[in-house]
Design a protein around this nucleic acid. Sequence first.
DNA 1: ATGAAAGCGCTAACAA
DNA 2: TTGTTAGCGCTTTCAT
Lengths: 340, 340
Amino acid sequence: MAGKVTSAQVAKRAGVSQSAVSRVFTPGASVSEKTAKKVRDAATALGYRPNVLARAMVSGKSRMIGLVVAYLDNHFYPDALEKLSNALQAKGYHVLVFMASNKTEIIDTVLEEILDYQVEGIITASVSMSSELASRCQQAGVPVVQFNRTQDLERVATVTSDNYQGGYDIAQFLAQGGHQRPAYIAGWEGASTQRDREAGFLDGLKDAGLTLFARGVGNFEADTAKAAACCMFGKRDAVLPDAVFVANDHMAFAVMDALRFELGLRVPQDVSVVGYDDVPPAAWTAYDLTTVRQRANRMVEATVAAMLEKIDHPASPARQVVVDAPLIIRGSARKPKGPL
Amino acid sequence: MAGKVTSAQVAKRAGVSQSAVSRVFTPGASVSEKTAKKVRDAATALGYRPNVLARAMVSGKSRMIGLVVAYLDNHFYPDALEKLSNALQAKGYHVLVFMASNKTEIIDTVLEEILDYQVEGIITASVSMSSELASRCQQAGVPVVQFNRTQDLERVATVTSDNYQGGYDIAQFLAQGGHQRPAYIAGWEGASTQRDREAGFLDGLKDAGLTLFARGVGNFEADTAKAAACCMFGKRDAVLPDAVFVANDHMAFAVMDALRFELGLRVPQDVSVVGYDDVPPAAWTAYDLTTVRQRANRMVEATVAAMLEKIDHPASPARQVVVDAPLIIRGSARKPKGPL
DNA sequence: ATGAAAGCGCTAACAA
DNA sequence: TTGTTAGCGCTTTCAT
């Protein structure tokens, strides 16, 4: 009933030693059913629950995973965070959140702070860490897995969708749809997702005998993307692109708005638009965006699996998981052999 | 440089006592500049950082705030989470996330778990806790503040937007716009936000001499809301509502899609649509949704302030903050004296 | 200003 | 199976 009940108090009440109490709350410890019952009764009566922090001190298991995330604008990340947190919770871990802007310096500072909390592992979403910090974590025995980013560092595990293939598929799809003048609006150029999507797209175009007609940079920000689109499509009496691949959905919505409502172009009749991520609004009828799906569920599963693997077997090699990313065909881009 | 550096190791290297090291890392402790320097040098050389958990054990300050959140679909919550986490981080706290579905039983379980981590406070977003749990937290000396929910419990602090006034303003606005047959699509009926918005809306209608023409329930879920809309507007040759207030934006988008693309109605010419929250997509041109803004920034500030107040002065009364919620007029609803 | 010593609440040998 | 005994890494009196 009281504020802070300790195992010692429970022990006294149950008439056993304090370690007996500890054992009752330690799965797989050896206690007789008789003592266990006495202890449990006393515990409930007193409202006792083990102190996770004290347990962490001596056992080294804090049951916390640090999650570093840069921004939650793009709906893909809150979605992933929700799933991640749920999956980890199911395994008895909890997520300590750290927001960090995408500057290496800040990320490194934040990571130091995370380590202070003795987390058992660190997941970074949409951010890259310095190799120096990566080694620090390794030395501290804290495994790191990067979600939706790759990096050359051999020691850190990564989980991504197949960004290269996704970009490639989009190029092929646009080519088959009869498009002649494909454009690209890039994300933040420091991101591996951006680089891989673009590389795949360019290779796909090349293999289809096409070349990039125009390129803009949107930095993964809606406003910047919109500006890039206006710049790209706003020219009077010029030959315009007939298709544009926007590096993520978040930007693609802004681009579609600009195209339709500010520049008076029809989508997909005048210009086809394709995004990346398949966040929920992509399926909303007002956008009906053709896009590549990042399978958040699978990516999260892989991330959790990689994390637990590293925690249980610290010596195991860092996995580099690539989840396949299917093209989701909707109405924002002209289809092969399609009407109109 | 190593994995786990303790204050004792730093002490040895610096040639001082272990407590001296502790003092150097305790703001406001009494240390001579000379010792401080020796200690800092040794600490940097060794890569020492204080262990937050060990500190928490003895000081009772874990520097963690538990955040319970039910779902992140509605973009208002990730946005709030980001701001909350940032604001708390700036104050030296970090957020331990717990996902909970909206069943009291589950929330209570989750809250017990949170307490095990010795958090210094708990913020609940979009969930309500049982009064029993509320007292448990109080007894444990852990302050609770509810974000975006009210409850009768006197002891828990709450921060909400002025949901009643928001609903009221919408009714008045629709009345002034010449609407005759206002409808309402409700959120989850267990939520105080839902109840307050509806109450305000109904009173606003009454004061304008109107009565509710139709009512559906969307549970704050897009699909359910869409179904409700189809049910409400799908009748052949019937007199339809000429305006609908949807209890949040998330549902409003789905309703607009159904109205325009499935039922062939024009927005706002045939029917006006108003939402609540002003999440980012509300401003996207494809929706251009008239809505009531929840000022996330202010709400977060108030939440953090209430939290810190309670932590610093446990005896202080629980604040009940209501942040004003302005109507944001866009194009999805016919305006008073407007064209068309 | 500094060091010695006593724990915070718990787990993990070690005996018994 | 159980109790006893050390600590985990730190803050905090209490002396000095």
